[in-house]
Amino acid sequence: MLYRITVRNADGEKLEIVVEMSEDEVRALAEELRKAGYEVRVEPIPEGEEP
């Protein structure tokens, strides 16, 4: 499935990426980023919607 991941650092800089991963993989990635001090938001992209 496609997911949009938005990551912000302490300075407020934002990075937005689209990935194709399983829900478990995305959850693990988000958890690791949060542990590293980043603010993370994950949104699933519905099938048929443009990323």
Rank of each mutant, 00 (worst) to 15 (best):
M1D: 05
M1I: 08
M1P: 11
M1G: 13
L2I: 09
Y3E: 01
Y3C: 02
R4I: 06
R4V: 07
R4S: 03
R4P: 00
I5C: 02
I5D: 00
I5N: 00
I5P: 00
I5Y: 00
T6A: 03
T6K: 05
T6L: 07
T6W: 08
V7H: 01
V7W: 13
R8Q: 13
R8L: 11
N9P: 03
N9L: 10
N9R: 14
N9I: 09
A10P: 10
A10R: 08
D11Q: 13
D11W: 14
D11N: 09
G12S: 03
G12C: 13
G12W: 03
G12T: 02
G12K: 03
G12R: 04
E13F: 15
E13S: 11
E13L: 13
K14G: 08
K14D: 10
K14T: 12
K14Q: 12
K14R: 13
L15I: 12
L15T: 11
L15S: 08
E16T: 09
E16S: 08
I17P: 00
I17Y: 10
I17A: 03
V18Y: 11
V19Q: 02
E20W: 08
E20P: 03
M21E: 01
M21Y: 03
M21N: 02
M21S: 03
S22L: 15
S22H: 08
E23Q: 11
E23K: 08
E23F: 08
E23L: 07
D24Y: 08
D24N: 07
D24G: 09
D24K: 05
D24A: 07
D24H: 08
D24I: 09
E25D: 07
E25C: 03
E25Y: 06
V26Q: 01
V26W: 02
V26C: 03
V26E: 00
V26H: 00
R27Q: 09
R27I: 11
R27D: 05
R27H: 12
A28P: 01
A28V: 13
A28I: 11
L29C: 03
L29I: 09
A30Q: 05
E31Q: 13
E31V: 13
E31R: 06
E31I: 10
E31S: 13
E32K: 15
E32W: 14
E32I: 15
E32M: 14
L33M: 07
L33P: 00
R34E: 05
R34S: 06
K35C: 03
K35Q: 08
K35N: 06
A36R: 15
A36E: 04
A36Y: 12
G37D: 02
G37M: 02
G37I: 00
G37P: 00
Y38I: 02
Y38Q: 02
E39G: 04
E39R: 06
E39P: 01
E39D: 10
V40G: 01
V40E: 00
V40Y: 01
V40F: 02
V40S: 01
V40H: 00
R41G: 06
R41S: 15
V42T: 04
V42F: 14
V42P: 00
E43L: 10
E43I: 10
E43W: 06
P44C: 06
P44Q: 11
P44A: 08
P44S: 08
I45K: 04
P46K: 14
P46E: 09
P46Y: 11
E47T: 14
E47F: 13
E47Q: 14
E47Y: 12
E47L: 12
G48N: 15
E49D: 12
E49P: 13
E49I: 14
E50F: 12
E50N: 15
E50I: 14
E50G: 10
E50L: 11
P51L: 01
P51S: 13
